[in-house]
Design a protein around this nucleic acid. Structure first.
Lengths: 143, 143
DNA sequence: GCACAAATTAGACAAAGTCCAATTATTGAA
DNA sequence: TTCAATAATTGGACTTTGTCTAATTTGTGC
C-alpha cells in the first residue's frame, strides 16, 4: 500500500502524481478522505469540509469525488441503495457491511480467495470483483 | 430451485405460500418479475405493468416490491448506484455486471467457493454474501 | 347490503446527484 | 507584475429514485 501522509505538501504531491491540479477545495476534500475514518458519503464529506467555515460547494464535492475516482485515487463502494460511499483505500479488498447501522469495514483481500468464477464473454475484461458480506445482530426483534 | 410457472393460478399459489394476499396488481407485478427477463428496476416494472392499460400506480409497485423482498420472494440487487434491481431468483448466486451496458447476469453459486472470510464480531450473523464481478469491453476508447 | 379491514391511489415530498451559465482562480508568458 | 487564456468553482434549477399520507377503493364475512 502506498503510504500517504495527511499534511498539505504530501496531499499536493499525491494529487499531482495523479494528474490533478491541487486546488484549495480539492486539498480540503482529500484531507477529509485520507485523514479521517473511511467510507464517507458525498454528503458527509460536504459537511466535514465546511465544518469550520463554508468553503466548498456541493457541485465541487461531487465533481471532485468523481475526478478522484476516475484518476484512481479513491474507489466507490456500492452497498447501500441510498448513497455511494467513497473509499480512500484502493488496494484490493472487500467489505463487511452492517445492515443495521450502515457501518462499513474492510476485509483484506490477502486472506481471501475465490475460486470457480466463470469465464467472461470474449472481448470482456474484469474491472474488479466486489465481495460484500452483509451482517446483522443475531436476534433482531423481528421474528 | 423452486419451479415456478408463470400462469395466474401458480402465481396466486406462490403469493399465498408467502403469506401475501394475491391482488390484481400484485399478480401483474409477479408476472412481470417471474415471467420475463430478470433484474428489472422498479421503473421498468412500473412501465411493463402498465404497458397495455394503466392499472397500477407507482406507490403500489414500490410497496409490492418491498413486500416481496421482505417475504423472501425476490431479492434486491445493489450494483448500480442509480437504482435498485430486483431478482426473482432467490437461490444462492452472484452477479456479473456489465459496467458499460448495465446488464446483469447470474453466476451460479454452486461452481463458486470463497475461503478466508473473516469471523464476524460476536453477536453478529451473516445475512448474505454478495459477489459482483464488474466487467467491461476490453479496449474502450478511453486510453 | 353492511361494516370492517386491507390495498391502492394521486400527488406532495425528500434526498442524492447532475447540469448550466456566470464568476473566480490559476497559470504561463511577456 | 500584468494580461490573457484556461481551468475550477459556484448557486441554483433540475432530474431521478423512492417514500409518505390522507382519501378512496376493494374485498370479506356476516
Amino acid at each position: 500500500m502506498e503510504a500517504i501522509s495527511y499534511n498539505r505538501p504530501s496531499l499536493t504531491a499525491l494529487l499531482r502524481r495523479h494528474g490533478i491540479a491541487p486546488t484549495h477545495q480539492r486539498l480540503e476534500i482529500a484531507q477529509v478522505l485520507f485523514g479521517r475514518c473511511h467510507h464517507l458519503s458525498a454528503d458527509q464529506i460536504l459537511a466535514r469540509v465546511n465544518e469550520q467555515h463554508a468553503e466548498t460547494s456541493k457541485a465541487t464535492v461531487y465533481n471532485t469525488l468523481n475526478l478522484f475516482c476516475d484518476r484512481g485515487l479513491i474507489r466507490e463502494v456500492i452497498v447501500d441503495p441510498k448513497r455511494v460511499f467513497y473509499d480512500p483505500n484502493t488496494d484490493p479488498h472487500h467489505h463487511l457491511y452492517n445492515v443495521d447501522t450502515g457501518e462499513i469495514t474492510d476485509i483484506h483481500a490477502g486472506a481471501l480467495s475465490v475460486s470457480g468464477l466463470p469465464e467472461l464473454p470474449p472481448g470482456m475484461v474484469t474491472e474488479g470483483v466486489d465481495i460484500i458480506v452483509r451482517m446483522r445482530a443475531s436476534s433482531p426483534s423481528v421474528g
